Simulated assay, not measured.
Amino acid sequence: MKVSKRFRWEAAHRLPWHEGSCRFMHGHSYRMMVELEGEPTENTPGGSAMLIDFKHVKRIVKPLVDAMDHATIVNASDTELREAIEALESKVYVMPYDSTAENIARHVAESVRDDGASVLRTHGVHTIRVQVWETETCYAEVEREVPEGRSDPASAEEVLAAMR
């Protein structure tokens, strides 16, 4: 069973090593699809066929999207751009690698996996797929497995309660 939730945000970035126009700072209207795959567990309320409530997906992903929205996404090693953005007192989102669509998708997939592992396991989610659309015609996709571990409904509920 698969469920997907779409997200959108606006952001600027640059790829200083790029041979084309992407070496200059520019912006995108990003679209992202977060897809979760798995089988509902007996922990699903009422034993329904629901994999995971979309509100849980939103609670895991939205803080990351909010942090990137209307920010300049900067590689941590691009100190020149980072310092310029900070000097302008503008919003900056620092990643440990270049802000390509591939790396943004990887970053989101790994953040969802790491930050939401307990909740995802409790609901029977075993695979995360993230598509990041940089333009209307171009996207990158990354897939990550949710690490196996004890599915503890009590701790998952604590995580969800803390996210409310």
Rank of each mutant, 00 (worst) to 15 (best):
residue 1 M to R: 14
residue 3 V to Q: 08
residue 3 V to R: 06
residue 5 K to C: 08
residue 9 W to S: 04
residue 12 A to T: 01
residue 13 H to L: 01
residue 14 R to Q: 12
residue 16 P to M: 06
residue 16 P to K: 11
residue 18 H to R: 13
residue 20 G to D: 13
residue 21 S to C: 13
residue 21 S to F: 07
residue 24 F to C: 14
residue 29 S to A: 08
residue 31 R to G: 04
residue 33 M to E: 15
residue 34 V to M: 06
residue 34 V to Q: 02
residue 40 P to W: 04
residue 45 P to K: 12
residue 46 G to A: 06
residue 50 M to L: 15
residue 50 M to F: 13
residue 55 K to I: 01
residue 57 V to G: 00
residue 57 V to D: 00
residue 61 V to D: 02
residue 61 V to K: 07
residue 61 V to T: 10
residue 62 K to Y: 11
residue 67 A to P: 00
residue 67 A to R: 09
residue 70 H to Q: 02
residue 72 T to R: 11
residue 73 I to C: 06
residue 74 V to P: 09
residue 75 N to M: 09
residue 75 N to D: 15
residue 77 S to F: 07
residue 77 S to G: 05
residue 77 S to A: 14
residue 78 D to P: 11
residue 80 E to S: 10
residue 81 L to V: 00
residue 83 E to S: 15
residue 84 A to S: 14
residue 89 E to W: 06
residue 93 Y to E: 09
residue 96 P to F: 08
residue 100 T to Q: 14
residue 100 T to R: 11
residue 101 A to Y: 04
residue 102 E to D: 12
residue 103 N to M: 15
residue 104 I to R: 12
residue 104 I to Y: 13
residue 104 I to S: 13
residue 105 A to Y: 14
residue 105 A to R: 08
residue 106 R to E: 12
residue 108 V to L: 14
residue 109 A to P: 09
residue 109 A to Y: 01
residue 110 E to P: 04
residue 113 R to E: 09
residue 118 S to T: 09
residue 121 R to P: 12
residue 121 R to I: 09
residue 122 T to A: 09
residue 126 H to Y: 13
residue 129 R to M: 01
residue 130 V to A: 03
residue 135 T to Q: 05
residue 135 T to Y: 05
residue 135 T to G: 07
residue 139 Y to G: 01
residue 139 Y to F: 10
residue 140 A to Q: 10
residue 144 R to C: 06
residue 145 E to D: 10
residue 145 E to L: 10
residue 146 V to R: 02
residue 146 V to Q: 03
residue 146 V to C: 08
residue 147 P to I: 04
residue 148 E to V: 02
residue 150 R to E: 00
residue 151 S to E: 03
residue 151 S to G: 00
residue 152 D to V: 02
residue 154 A to C: 05
residue 157 E to F: 00
residue 157 E to I: 00
residue 157 E to T: 00
residue 158 E to K: 01
residue 158 E to R: 05
residue 159 V to E: 10
residue 162 A to F: 03
residue 162 A to T: 07
residue 163 M to L: 12
